[in-house]
């Protein structure tokens, strides 16, 4: 069968690649490296500048306040790693917190309400994911429309009023309660982040999320249902936004259609600050956690230092720019775009 041509003893392809050392590993994860530096820096700064920052109650307070951000940022990391974005999470959070209060006032058992709300968030995510994955409309457009429409629905259902939730219900424990000396929302957020980490780094699904961001056509040619994977990351971000809405409503004891204005930007800031590439293909859950905590620490520390809270967005924005700039200049691995 084979041809008569003869070429004997073909040398194996030569290689000049040296094995990867510790330094290469650090620089390949440059995004995480630079945010870790920033995180330590702001923690040390506020510990020195203020008395109360490094106290246990304050740290637990930071964890409680940042838990909605952490939950949604974990899911957003997956969305952004596929090369997409979800701008609608703030609006979903508002709609869910409002619906949550309305349904609890109507006398529906709160456990059922929570499940309904998670399903509602997932459904909204699935609808948006359908347009992104199956219809090929850019995620930015789809979720920008979602941001507007969902916020509008929330305003329409509440008439713009905030709806109280009776503090006597055990529902509010979801936002205010303690378990083993730790705030319940922080426990929920920790669980979500741990699950997201395992999903992202240890499962085929997580591998395909990264692959789709790097080269979606390659993953499709490898026989993977890339559309279903893409749709599912939006289901996850919708569900997590809903969970954040439930926790927020429980903490505040009310549901408001004005909640979470600009929340999506905080979430995206946390993810990008953590070193996840907006172009897709490169994501890190550890970086996202550090990014979210950095954002939370800055907000908390500036208030404790008796500085104007209006400084928070200025400082956060500056750090985002500097951190990304560091990634591009120092950690060239993270800056190199396919």
């Amino acid at each position: 069968m084979s041809t008569p041509a003869q070429i004997s003893s073909v040398p194996t392809p030569a290689t000049r690649l040296r094995p990867r050392g510790l330094k290469d590993r650090f620089f390949a994860n440059g995004g995480v490296g630079s945010i870790a530096v920033f995180f330590v820096f702001v923690v040390v700064l506020f510990s020195v500048a203020t008395e109360d920052f490094l106290s246990v109650p304050n740290i637990l307070n930071i964890l409680r306040q940042s838990s909605p951000l952490l939950m949604v940022a974990a899911a957003m990391t997956l969305v952004i790693t596929t090369g997409g974005i979800d701008l609608s999470v703030g609006s979903i959070l508002a709609l869910v917190s409002a619906l949550c209060a309305i349904l609890i006032q109507a006398g529906i058992p709160w456990a059922l309400v929570v499940l309904l709300m998670l399903a509602c968030g997932g459904l909204i995510g699935a609808l948006q994911g359908f347009f992104v994955a199956y219809e090929g409309i850019p995620a930015f457009i789809v979720t920008l429309a979602g941001l507007s429409v969902i916020r509008g629905v929330a305003l329409l259902t509440t008439g713009g009023y905030s709806i109280p939730i009776p503090a006597t219900l055990s529902f509010v424990e979801l936002g205010r309660g303690w378990f083993l000396g730790v705030p319940v929302p922080a426990i929920i957020a920790t669980g979500i982040v741990a699950l997201a980490f395992v999903l992202f780094t240890q499962t085929p699904f997580g591998r395909y999320v990264t692959g789709i961001g790097a080269n979606a056509e390659a993953v499709r040619r490898a026989g993977v249902n890339t559309k279903a994977v893409t749709l599912f990351v939006y289901v996850l971000s919708g569900t997590m936004a809903a969970l954040a809405g439930v926790v927020l409503a429980a903490r505040l004891g009310s549901g408001s259609s004005n909640a979470g204005q600009g929340f999506e930007l905080d979430v995206i800031a946390a993810v990008v600050l953590g070193g996840t590439s907006l172009f897709g293909g490169r994501g890190t859950m550890v970086g996202t956690v550090l990014g979210a905590l950095t954002v939370a620490v800055i907000g908390n520390g500036l208030i404790l230092a008796h500085l104007s809270p209006f400084l928070t967005p200025i400082v956060t924005g500056t750090i985002i720019l500097v951190a990304i700039w560091m990634n591009f200049r120092i950690f060239r691995g993270a800056a190199r775009k396919r």
Partner: peptide, 8 residues
């Protein structure tokens, strides 16, 4: 085009 995922 080789169909490889660069970041994998």
């Amino acid at each position: 085009d080789l169909s490889l995922c660069d970041t994998v």
